[in-house]
Computed example of a mutant assay.
Amino acid sequence: MAVLHQQPTNLMAAVSDYDSVTESEPPPYTPVAAPVTARRRQSSSLSASASASSSSTSQSKSISLTLIYQLLQLTSLLPALTGVLYLIIRFSSRQLPLPNPSRIEYLASTPWAVLTAVHSFQIISSMLHRWKRYYHPISIIIRLLSIQAASFPWIRVTLWLCSTPEKPLLAWIIVAVTTAISSSIARWYISNLGGVTSRHKPKARHLDIARLLTRTILPIFVISLLSLLIVLYDLYSVRLSVSM
């Protein structure tokens, strides 16, 4: 009976020893023969060179995409900058009789056109920041081209509907204020990107009041005051010329 009790104990000890040996063994991936090792080294070098070439290709592709995105961002300035150039040319033209109230309105409309260009660029930058996170590059380029194709007719139609002949100031005020509001909405729309709450939920959209005051409301207030001064000077000069 002692022998029978001793035999399972020895068997359990052998099993435990075998388990300890197998647990301490290294992973089973070990090259055995030298030709196999050389072949694997050659394949690893080929894969390393292939990965290096693919990384350089992807890097050049990302650089080219960045250049395309920047070029399309800059084209968002074209409609408003075309308006700025037209306003400056009309203001500096000598064919308009003096004193002429419409001539000074071209000068007063120029800051509003510049403000339109700034906010148009901010809209494209905000939406591009979102699109690069969620969409394929081809879809991003199509969206950028679509916005550019719609912005120029929108500005042209607004100028045609809101301005009487040779009176562009009201139309450019409407265009600039509408673009500024759209820029604020675009900044609010992307305000939840790049962050999570404590419960691992996406951040809620929020409105940056400080940025709204400094980049939207304050420029509109300053340009409005400047336009008012220009128009008052124009009225004073017309009254002075009529009295003389």
Rank of each mutant, 00 (worst) to 15 (best):
I89T: 15
I89R: 14
R90S: 13
R90T: 06
R90L: 07
F91V: 04
S92M: 07
S93V: 00
S93T: 03
S93A: 00
R94C: 05
R94V: 06
R94F: 11
Q95V: 09
L96D: 07
L98M: 11
L98G: 05
P99Y: 05
P99Q: 09
P99H: 09
P101N: 04
S102V: 02
R103K: 15
I104P: 02
E105T: 10
Y106S: 05
Y106C: 11
L107M: 03
A108P: 09
S109E: 07
T110H: 01
T110D: 00
T110I: 01
P111I: 01
P111R: 01
W112F: 12
W112E: 01
W112L: 01
A113N: 04
V114N: 02
V114F: 09
V114S: 00
L115C: 07
L115H: 12
T116V: 03
A117I: 04
V118I: 15
H119V: 03
H119I: 02
H119A: 06
S120L: 10
S120M: 08
F121H: 11
F121P: 10
Q122K: 15
Q122Y: 15
I123D: 05
I124N: 10
I124S: 11
I124L: 11
S125M: 13
S125F: 06
S125Q: 14
S126T: 12
S126F: 05
S126D: 12
S126Q: 09
L128G: 07
H129D: 05
H129E: 02
R130A: 13
W131I: 09
W131M: 13
R133Q: 03
Y134Q: 13
Y135Q: 11
Y135C: 12
Y135L: 15
Y135N: 10
H136Q: 13
H136R: 13
P137Q: 02
I138A: 08
I138M: 06
I138Q: 09
S139I: 13
S139N: 10
I140P: 11
I141N: 06
